[in-house]
Amino acid sequence: MHPVDQAVKAFQPELPLAVAFSGGADSSALLLACHARWPGQVRAIHVHHGLQAAADGFQLHCEAVCAAHGIPLKVCKIDARKQPGQSPEDAARQGRYQALIEAAEQDWLDEGRLALQPVRSMALAQHADDQVETLLLALSRGAGVAGLAAMPAHWQRAGLQWFRPLLEVPGQALRDWLQQRNMTWVEDPTNTDQGYTRNRIRAQLLPVLEQIFPQFRSTFARSSAHCAQAADLLQELAASDLQAVGSPPRIRDLQALSHQRLANVLRHWLRSEYGTTPSAAQLTQLVQQVYACTTRGHRIHIKVGRGFVQRQGAILDWYNS
């Protein structure tokens, strides 16, 4: 059995299912394989980013593919221009996720204009090569276990079940699957732009890894899975410790923790309560100041993320700058 068919056979989403459909090879293979398995239960959502001249052509291609196969399609146009301090990739990613959520929540109609069941699951087409690239980028940034866990295969968000069913399928296998069925796709010109680090990894590093470690996709995936398990354990420990020290946390109770647990619970507190993540340097400074806070007049006021952590009597507090 072809790896694409094998992956979709093992895929068990709640139906109806929506597929994020760019028109590229990856999402084309995912959409058409899912449609073949669950005819009438699959929809497509195309996000028009408006960032390049080819975007209108992508939309037309997606409309033609969906019309030819009788797949309901929604097209969402977004403004993916970045905000100050935001990377272009992050701006596009955040806009894309929001558009997918909003499209999934809308009413869906068939060709006869009859209402269809609401979408319950969303599938994204990232594959094994994308996962390796994500892991290598995380390594280059010195990420911890949460970052080295790379992309999850399943999670929940905004009332939807989200899946990446192709994470164990190499990118070339997706193109092979389409070519065997005489199906076409569009090529995003930015995918060959060597100005993007991810594209340089794909073009220069992956071929070398293929020669030296032919099984690197599966072995890297195992490492990411181990990191994901470790990250889950750290999350459970942090949640337990935060319950013990309080939120906002009491300085005296924080000081009773080991260095590693103190850093872990402070990171969790800031992320879960305020949606901000300290840098490694900021977290190190905060841990040192918590341990040093042994007198009534000791002041803590440290820049963390988008705001500041400061001492308020017996507790730590955070406020947005």
Rank of each mutant, 00 (worst) to 15 (best):
A128H: 02
R217L: 07
E187G: 04
M122E: 09
G142T: 06
A143G: 10
S218W: 11
Q172T: 09
T190G: 11
D193E: 09
A146M: 12
T197Y: 14
G195L: 07
A203Q: 15
Q106F: 08
A173P: 10
R222G: 09
Q211R: 15
D176G: 06
Q194L: 14
W185E: 01
T190S: 14
P170W: 05
G144V: 07
R198F: 10
A153W: 07
Q126F: 11
F163S: 08
R181G: 00
M183F: 04
L148I: 03
L135Y: 13
L116Q: 09
S218N: 11
L178R: 00
A146E: 14
L160Q: 06
T184G: 08
L206Y: 00
G142N: 03
L174S: 08
A150D: 07
L209Q: 04
A138H: 01
F220K: 03
V169P: 12
L148K: 03
L178I: 06
A221E: 02
A221M: 05
I212G: 09
L139S: 10
T134N: 03
A125H: 01
Q156V: 11
N182E: 10
N191Q: 15
L116A: 03
P170G: 09
W177S: 00
A146T: 15
A225F: 08
L109P: 10
R120N: 02
A228G: 14
N191S: 14
D176W: 03
N191K: 14
S121I: 07
Q156E: 15
A228S: 13
S218Q: 15
T190K: 12
W177H: 01
L148N: 00
L114W: 11
T192G: 15
S121Y: 12
L137F: 02
R181K: 04
L136A: 14
A149I: 08
A146G: 14
A149H: 04
L139R: 13
G195C: 07
E133P: 02
L174N: 03
G195P: 00
L209P: 05
S223G: 14
M122Y: 10
S121K: 03
L174Y: 02
L116K: 05
P214D: 07
L114Q: 15
R222D: 14
H154A: 12
V145Q: 12
L160T: 01
A203W: 04
P189L: 08
T219R: 15
C227R: 04
L167M: 13
R198V: 13
L139W: 09
P207H: 06
L124Y: 06
